[in-house]
Design a protein around this nucleic acid. Sequence first.
DNA 1: ACCCAGGAAATTC
DNA 2: GAATTTCATGGG
Length: 272
Amino acid sequence: MSTLIFDKIQDLSLKETLDCGQCFRWKEREDGSFFGVVRGRAAAVHMEGDRLFIDGAKECDRDLWADYFDLSLDYADVKEQLSVIHPEMASAARFAPGIRILRQEPWEALISFIISQNNNIKRITGIVDRLCAHFGDPIGDGVFAFPTAEQLAALSPEDLMPIRAGFRHRYIIDAAQKTADGTIDLEQIRHLPYDAARQTLMQITGVGVKVADCVLLYGLHRLESFPLDVWMKRATATLFDGMDPSAFGAYAGIAQQYIFHYARSHPEKFIN
DNA sequence: ACCCAGGAAATTC
DNA sequence: GAATTTCATGGG
């Protein structure tokens, strides 16, 4: 297996991007690299200066990895645009300037954020790990792909007991069945107007406004999405009192990720 | 023992 | 219809 290299990479920190609560399948290793699985392909990633290394990836997947890390978007420009909107937004971006919004697989984002509800990131990661290990295809060296909708649709909520996701088991199975039988077509949702896309996702039991917004942002790269979880509600109340989230415009989702990570990293600022 | 976690469904008022 | 309660699980 070979190593893919991308040169002249700006505005990317792997730690900030892979450990800021937008994805749940990357593990930091002793040497500072990250190991993960994307679209059934395992790889270890690290940076040396402005060069990004994807170890274990094939040359034919170069576009796939460039797409995953959203390398075609100029984040310096995005940060400039967002920072003039509000000074606290500028501070949040300076705190973690290497955050990017990954282009995750929509189906994986859907299940991951169904699991995320009323949960914490550490436990979400554990549940996703067990979901893959129990029901995903083995892809070598004890590593597993994310299970497909068809694979999960064949199961019942009781079959998910080993992943210990509690009341979310039936939500996962409902999402799998509706995706597998075509009731929900994530690639079709990608092209719908925002509110229609959100309403369509909310046909799944266990998908409300916030989970739908996360699927749209992290799985379908709708950068105008602005998921409001408990942290973002605290942060917007404290930092942007009375401000309409839509003021962040077309890149509101990127603003949201800077602010979310900033708030979670400074909890003392947001506890009343 | 209690409270909370990247919420949403079910129930009650 | 709007406000409240319940839903599993694990860590602080």
